[in-house]
Design a protein around this nucleic acid. Structure first.
Lengths: 343, 343
DNA sequence: ATCAAAATTTTACCCGCGTAAATTTTATCA
DNA sequence: TGATAAAATTTACGCGGGTAAAATTTTGAT
């Protein structure tokens, strides 16, 4: 560490006694220069803490070493967790992740895609808003930038999709609930923000049919990304109306369940599988908060690690093969039933 | 929208009949060119969707229009909320925010500061890890980049600090709790991650002294950023040991309280202010989930909007005055007591 | 209409680096 | 040790724009 008199790569190259283009190669990939050369550069690097101008570096590069990560709603800690894992993998592999959240807003998502395009990223991991997404904007984007979709699928878009197998989630919860008690009804938003919700309803219906049970879908009103509040208000409604067809409620996702449980608590409805309980509640996602609800929430867990690892690996394959894959793959990972106290 | 044959600003300038440097000025600040010129450029922009190469733009600029936002732990929805507000303000003002999370890790925080420096941002809004932060790394960073600290203060670093007034939080909760029931004890981590925790303990002690009450600080073990789990384990411990000195628990922050409440529920301890309740629990932060705990959590709320608005405005002032402020200001916003059901 | 001052636009030059092609060095093997 | 292929380095040029200073146009008061 010393006075950083070094203003550019030219000067740094002069000092380390190597030509500038070789130094350039070194920064692009240290292993691409001779060992002796590398050592001389690294020695100089110790003395003068020079770092290349990232803007000048990327200007003439067709593809940068940047990876874009886009999530729909960052105030949801589920995405916080996923992002943490994905970022780690990207950095390990020598990429520079940049993170964006659409904050539940279509216009914002479009703006993100716009600025992402001008970043010339090597690839993008995109968890779209879903129903609210501007499909054509996403389609156009994917044509120009190597993109892997994750979490929420949009038919045919991106070079691949990596997510969880909604059928696996629902079949496990439905099977468990109906085996151990009353038939579950399915509690969801009338107009879900996310395609996973639709898949889960369908899985519920087909699972009930297979088990020869009568399905009941309870649809509640509400829009936006404040799922907990929506679940809570919906919970108050169905509890007040006593309109629940069974004593077992399977929520479409944990955030709705969190709200529903708080409505139950406030309404004095005891939830759990004990003899003194009036209601069982289960759900899907294994949201980071779901182990701290009262009672703790029985749910089907995403394989966070598998999804994020596979999404990243798929993107790396995509990047290495020049931005196009033979055929669009959809990798779905099964859920793991987490039995806690709510059902 | 048409075929984007435009490869660079030169070509675009030719087509719109303006010289390239003027076009450059336009993209830097549309209001800096004559109205007629602006209209001609914007007309051309409609026909040919050209956008300048951001890397070429920033290469020779001493300062970009980027603003760095750094938070310690993005899986905490508190930061998700703050980020959402801050990003909005930055975009409104024509800046490009880029978001980073240290994910609770010092090395990661340092790496972020490193890459942030090479981004030549106009300014940075930094919520440091706190105790885990590498103070000297942050100090060096702040010398080179105009930085406003927020949420968690580090004495003397950055050109300003914007956050919440911990004394206001604690004085309100302590006053309320001791006025309406038993004296509160203070429930916190033995080695808190965040300087706010220390300020809150001190505020608790001084407040108790002022009220002529005997303070009790309950310290629980645990490290890292999984506060809920730490609060939960600590809760089980103190409940099993029956070591709580009073029936009123004031948690240092909501995430601890969330864990503590789940421990209470599982231990069959009824929390609330009703006659059949054994314990009152209150806390600080107004975490997004605190209204969904069981019972809903009485807490002191950050003025999210004021903090984020003020942090951004302070940064803008800092940027306009060339990166240095007369003297380091600390803006603290008072809390608002949110009375819910837990106390 | 005139003319100087102010606001814009152009001219001219530079920034910091990527990269293909040419050249040099190193490694391989007889 | 010498010939030759392979690897590394250097040469030479371009990329896409920023920006000071010069030239021009506009403004506004007379």
């Amino acid at each position: 560490m010393s006075q950083s008199e070094i203003r550019n790569m030219e000067e740094f190259a002069a000092i380390s006694g190597i030509s500038r283009p070789t130094v350039s190669k070194y920064f692009h990939d240290p292993s691409s220069v001779r060992k002796t050369t590398r050592m001389r550069i690294e020695a100089a690097l110790e003395k003068y803490d020079y770092r290349p101008n990232i803007y000048a570096m990327n200007q003439n590069r067709k593809l940068t070493k940047n990876i874009g990560i886009v999530v729909p709603y960052l105030a949801d800690p589920f995405f916080g967790e996923i992002v943490r894992m994905i970022e780690g993998r990207c950095i390990e592999a020598g990429f520079t992740p940049s993170l964006f959240s659409a904050h539940g807003d279509q216009a914002h998502e479009n703006d993100i895609l716009d600025s992402l395009r001008s970043m010339k990223p090597a690839g993008v991991l995109l968890a779209p808003l879903g129903r609210q997404s501007d499909k054509s904007a996403i389609e156009t984007f994917c044509k120009h930038v190597p993109t892997v979709l994750f979490d929420s699928n949009i038919e045919g878009m991106g070079e691949a999709f990596v997510g969880s197998d909604n059928h696996s989630f629902v079949s496990q919860t439905v099977e468990y609930l109906s085996r151990t008690g009353e038939t579950p009804c399915f509690f969801e938003m009338r107009t879900p923000a996310n395609p996973n919700a639709n898949k889960r309803r369908i899985a519920y219906l087909s699972m009930m049919e297979r088990l020869g049970l009568e399905p009941h879908v309870v649809k509640i009103d509400g829009t936006g990304w404040g799922f907990e509040e929506i679940g809570r208000q919906g919970g108050f409604r169905v509890l007040a109306e006593k309109s629940l067809p069974t004593n077992t409620v399977l929520c479409s996702n944990d955030r709705l369940a969190i709200g529903f449980l708080s409505a139950c608590y406030e309404s004095g409805v005891r939830v759990g599988r004990g003899p003194d309980c009036q209601l069982r509640v289960a759900s899907h996602d294994d949201h980071p908060f779901s182990r701290f609800t009262c009672p703790s929430l029985t749910t089907a867990a995403h394989d966070y690690t598998a999804v994020s690892d596979n999404a990243v690996e798929t993107l790396f394959r995509l990047i290495e093969s020049g931005g196009r894959l033979e055929n669009r793959t959809e990798s779905l990972f099964p859920a793991r039933l987490i039995m806690r106290d709510s059902a």
